[in-house]
């Protein structure tokens, strides 16, 4: 089928070789690419060789997982569904209250982190605080709150609350910095005070997006609150951990299913509301755009 190009190819109707061999220009050197590839390959190799994992067990992992799955999903008892759903609700509650607390602190903080509203030095300091909060997982924060509140849901609420301030604040100030100058200048032009400027120049522009980010964070926090339960602060995570610890596989399986179904259910409802908020009434329900925006923010993430 292909023309034999190495020795005087037979002339076909579609043969391209009307001229002599064309010479391609020299390919450019891609130093950065090669250096980066080598470094990454070296790091991966180092990790692979260095990690003290029992690799032989990896081959058994699917079988182990299957055994575990069978144990979990064959001994479930219907009578446990109701109490476990109650525990899932507790997890959702922890996530909601935590998100609310985070939002209450993040909104004012983000105003002071937005360079178009305050001076650069102030913004920089606030941003470092937000970064620090963002870097620490909720569960580590929870370690600090458990001795304060005991093994109660409130420890989880505060852990999630404090842990989400960083992320929410960062997303908020990015939104605020992205708003149009016009309305701010207009409020300045009529001699508005700083708080009036926030109220009339900034808030109306960003409210829909802020709201939808808070909801999005709520979805993320449901997962966080489920794992906080591992420490014993309540919610479905606590039951799941207990069940696994005491090898009550049926309960563990049921709890796992309820976590997955509950999380997806809340995601779905919250996602619909978010889309409606951002796009206004009559928006189509096909997903993507908000998450795409989030993905864009991450891709272009500015961390300073």
């Amino acid at each position: 089928m292909r023309t034999d190009l190495s020795r005087g190819a037979p002339v076909r109707a579609t043969d391209l070789s009307a001229k002599d061999w064309p010479q391609l220009p020299k390919p450019p050197r891609q130093v950065f690419k090669w250096v980066a590839t080598t470094i990454i390959a070296a790091i991966v190799l180092w990790s692979f060789i260095g990690l003290d994992a029992k690799w032989s067990r990896l081959l058994d992992a699917p079988a182990d997982l299957y055994t575990l799955g069978r144990l979990m999903f064959s001994q479930m008892e219907a009578s446990e569904i109701r109490p476990l759903i109650g525990k899932m609700w507790e997890s959702i509650s922890i996530a909601w209250m935590g998100t609310l607390i985070a939002a209450i602190f993040a909104v004012p903080l983000s105003f002071f982190a937005a360079e178009n509203l305050v001076g650069r030095p102030v913004a920089w300091i606030i941003r470092q605080v937000l970064n620090l909060l963002r870097a620490i997982p909720e569960i580590i924060i929870a370690l600090a709150f458990i001795p304060v509140f005991g093994l109660t849901p409130m420890a989880g609420v505060l852990a999630i609350g404090v842990g989400s301030i960083g992320t929410l604040g960062k997303l908020f100030y990015e939104i605020i910095e992205g708003i149009e100058r016009g309305p701010i200048e207009a409020t300045d032009a009529v001699g508005a005070s700083r708080s009036q400027r926030l109220r009339w120049g900034v808030l109306p522009q960003v409210t829909p997006e802020l709201t939808s980010f808070i909801l999005y964070r709520f979805e993320v926090n449901i997962r966080a609150s489920a794992i906080l339960g591992v420490l014993g602060v309540g919610g479905i995570g606590t039951d799941l951990t207990q069940a696994i610890r005491f090898k009550e596989w049926g309960t563990a399986g049921l709890a796992l299913i309820i976590v997955v179904v509950g999380t997806i259910a809340v995601d779905t409802v919250s996602g619909l509301v978010r889309r409606r908020i951002v796009r206004g009434p009559g928006a189509s329900s096909d997903g993507g755009s908000f998450e795409a925006h989030e993905a864009e923010l991450i891709a272009e993430s500015v961390n300073d």
Partner: peptide, 21 residues
Amino acid sequence: KADVHLAAQALDRVEIIDKAY
């Protein structure tokens, strides 16, 4: 190699082979 050569010829025919990279 054959495919690259064909591509080079095609680029040459529309006189843009210098922009190959």
